[in-house]
């Protein structure tokens, strides 16, 4: 809602969304970026534009749920990949049974020996019904995953 207040509220559709509210929701789930709203770049919205950038800017290196992978600590063991309930639900015959992902719907997957985050809007710590899930943290041997 705070985000919506800062938008032009003109429903100009230049961003490709039908309303500014729709744009705000898309912004929240990182589907679009602040830059995708052309009117915001006008001088009159300069302050709003900067505020919005600040609001949606993640902590350095973190995703929008605040998930940070400390790559230097990660073993690439994949414990988090297999323990993540969303991964299990989205890929029961891949990640769910400890094997390579069979689709693109995973939140966490291991590449080049290190875990990486994708589709973070699917994380249970995100969205309206968010819960403080910590299964990827407690299954990590090295505290390589952190939420900030």
């Amino acid at each position: 809602m705070e985000i919506y207040q800062l938008l032009p509220k003109t429903n100009c559709k230049k961003c490709g969304k039908s309303t500014c509210m729709a744009f705000a929701v898309a912004l929240l789930s990182w589907e679009v970026a602040v830059e995708d709203c052309p009117p915001l770049k006008d001088v009159e919205f300069k302050n709003n534009y900067e505020k919005l950038l600040e609001m949606v800017a993640p902590v350095e290196g973190s995703t929008e749920t605040g998930l940070i992978v400390h790559e230097d600590k990660c073993f690439g063991c994949g414990n988090c990949v297999v323990a993540c309930p969303v991964n299990v639900a989205n890929d029961p015959h891949g990640a769910g049974i400890g094997r390579a992902p069979t689709n693109d719907k995973l939140i966490l997957r291991v590449e080049d020996g290190i875990v990486r985050a994708f589709n973070i809007q699917e994380c249970r710590r995100f969205g309206e019904n968010r819960i403080l899930c910590n299964l990827c943290i407690i299954t990590c041997p090295t505290e390589a995953i952190e939420f900030v």
Partner: peptide
């Protein structure tokens, strides 16, 4: 150029 589902040891 890329190796998926491999641990740090295997990657190396």
């Amino acid at each position: 150029t890329k190796i998926k589902t491999v641990c740090r040891k295997g990657f190396s």
